[in-house]
Design a protein around this nucleic acid. Structure first.
Lengths: 334, 334
DNA sequence: ACTACTTGTCGACGCGTGTCGATAAAACTC
DNA sequence: GAGTTTTATCGACACGCGTCGACAAGTAGT
């Protein structure tokens, strides 16, 4: 592997000039820079990570706290990770994965102080999240995928709840549905809370009635939810699900009771990762979740922060797209 | 953060002695080592990653090539990753994630040569895998989760196909099933091929007849498989599925046709990650997949290899456990 | 008692980079 | 045109650790 010295020799400049030409911290004559870049390309030179970290105190390494998977988030986490990792690499950073145990927060600080880690990406954010509190106190740069209840100026990427919900509700409206229900989880993570209120808002704009059915993150609960719907609200013609796992159980329930989806009942799943779609029959109509992009965006925001590009936007909302598949149809006539 | 020099001072020894005391490359008086370790603990000293990598040419960083997810493997990949990462951390290594594009193989070599990466973990291994060929030629240490057709002396962790299959088949036998079918995917990865032959073997030992039904990795295909089974082999009383996604479709199909699982038909899924189980109703009887352990084992094997502990075992097979849930029952009487 | 090893420790150097201060040349200022 | 600032470049050093060679003290062999 070529070193800086070799590049310098080939370009006929000093080693430090190569540094400045590449990092742009001092003014360099344009022609010199070109010569350097050419030498870099010729030798296929890449700055050595370790040396850079040692000399500059910048590890160019991000840590992503990998979730335990308790909320079924594992199913989509890989997309986040892939996105975050790809973006990090594009900007010359590494992404390391840490299976997160709450107990290890202190260790993160140690790593950050020793320069081993430049910043942290968090996912599965709770409304009140002690990790966030801790990282702020420890002055470790971080970015969230999701957000706390009051994120203030903290960096985050989150789903655009309002946009996503509107896409779904408007589509149901266009099919003539006026009585809908939605499946939601009450969990501390806050996702469903935000979705829930966005949905009520969107529905009332379209003058729909919207029933709420509580589920937990299990297929069996989705099945129970179907039964509840069937008994209590037989006039509902469309269901919006905010929970992927329960969605699958809901479909099983409908099958069991002989209710045909989408002829008798439409179903639209918000915010569902691509992977899930192939898991159900009929294939789900969804507003999908741009997980890869969210991960990438988190990396970029975090790196901006680390590099003190504070002018850049550090709070991003992303909405997916409506993808019509097999679980939606025109509202049945009573 | 404390440095080696500070530890040396506190312990009243030279800096190099601290190094040797910690790494054990030279003989050190036991009492001295104790003093050093005490100082290390007192100062909460951790060797600086970057400096170590620079000086020793050892980055203590593993790269895991993250799969694209085309085979639905994304669903369990996170478990592998968490396991690999946890084990790596226990041994003082980092695990970085690389979303893998085939085109980037050359880059891996560059990184390895520059000492940035000490080794690579591969998953989603194909029978003939060009990545393996490449890494061997490039002399980059690697370990596979899965294995090629002829792994030779290459390091790998894989599922114990024979053990896993036997657990499943024996259990069905104990419930009185004699006519079974199995759902399998013919894909280049080789997993199903190995499972398939293990299954035929296990079934013939128990004097069962075993029908094979081909599926692809989609729910709809599982549904089609049910229909095929229903029409062609109505006397089958139990089904073994080797494909998680198709399993879910299969259940939908049964629901649709009014066949009750497990009363009319038993279903057992081999090698299914925990995450999946909550996604179906009734809950699946499975032989589960020890994904976390497999990931951890891959890291350990790879690190052994990097550190030239060549006496250690570098090929490991792991079987899951039979977990009886809601999809198996005694064979129906004809 | 002399050599020949072994054990335990130390000092010195190098890994490849980021960055500071110095310097020479060029560009302004009045 | 003397003084001042700006631009472009260079040399030197530090970052924290791994490791080699040196050396003193101890042990074994004759």
């Amino acid at each position: 592997m070529a070193t800086r010295a070799e590049v310098a020799k080939l370009a006929g400049v000093s080693a430090s000039t190569v540094s400045y030409a590449l990092n742009g911290d001092r003014s360099i004559k344009e022609e010199t820079r070109k010569r350097v870049l050419k030498a870099v390309a010729q030798l296929n030179y890449r700055p050595n990570f370790a040396a850079g970290a040692l000399a500059g105190g910048k590890s160019k390494t991000l840590a992503l706290l990998s979730p335990s998977g308790e909320f079924g988030i594992a199913l989509i986490a890989l997309e986040y990770i892939n996105g975050a990792s790809a973006a990090a690499r594009d900007r010359g950073y590494h992404l390391v994965i840490w299976p997160s145990q709450e107990s290890e927060l202190a260790e993160i600080q140690t790593f950050a102080e020793s320069g081993m880690i430049s910043g942290v990406i968090l996912m599965e954010i709770k409304f009140k999240d002690e990790r966030v509190t801790y990282l702020k106190k420890a002055k470790v740069p971080f970015a969230m995928i999701g957000r706390t209840e009051k994120p203030g100026k903290d960096s985050y990427v989150d789903r655009d709840f309002i946009g996503t919900t509107q896409l779904g509700v408007d589509y149901l409206d266009s099919l003539g549905h006026k009585k809908i229900a939605f499946l939601t989880t009450e969990r501390a993570v806050g996702v469903d809370t935000r979705f829930g209120s966005a949905l009520l808002e969107a529905a009332s704009k379209k003058k729909m009635t919207a029933r709420k059915i509580q589920v937990v993150n299990e297929a069996s609960s989705g099945r129970d939810a179907f039964i509840e719907l069937h008994k209590k609200y037989p006039d509902v013609t469309a269901v919006v699900s905010l929970n992927d796992i329960a969605t699958l159980g809901f479909i099983s329930g409908a099958n069991e009771y002989g209710i045909k989806i989408p002829k008798d009942l439409s179903l639209i799943a918000l915010d569902t990762p691509e992977n899930h779609i192939e898991m159900s029959w009929p294939p789900l109509t969804t507003v999908n979740l741009p997980a890869f992009e969210m991960g990438a965006s988190a990396s970029n925001i975090l790196i901006d922060q680390i590099e003190h590009k504070e002018n850049k936007q550090n709070q991003v909302l992303l909405a997916g797209e409506l993808v019509v598949r097999g679980t939606t149809a025109k509202a049945r006539k009573e």
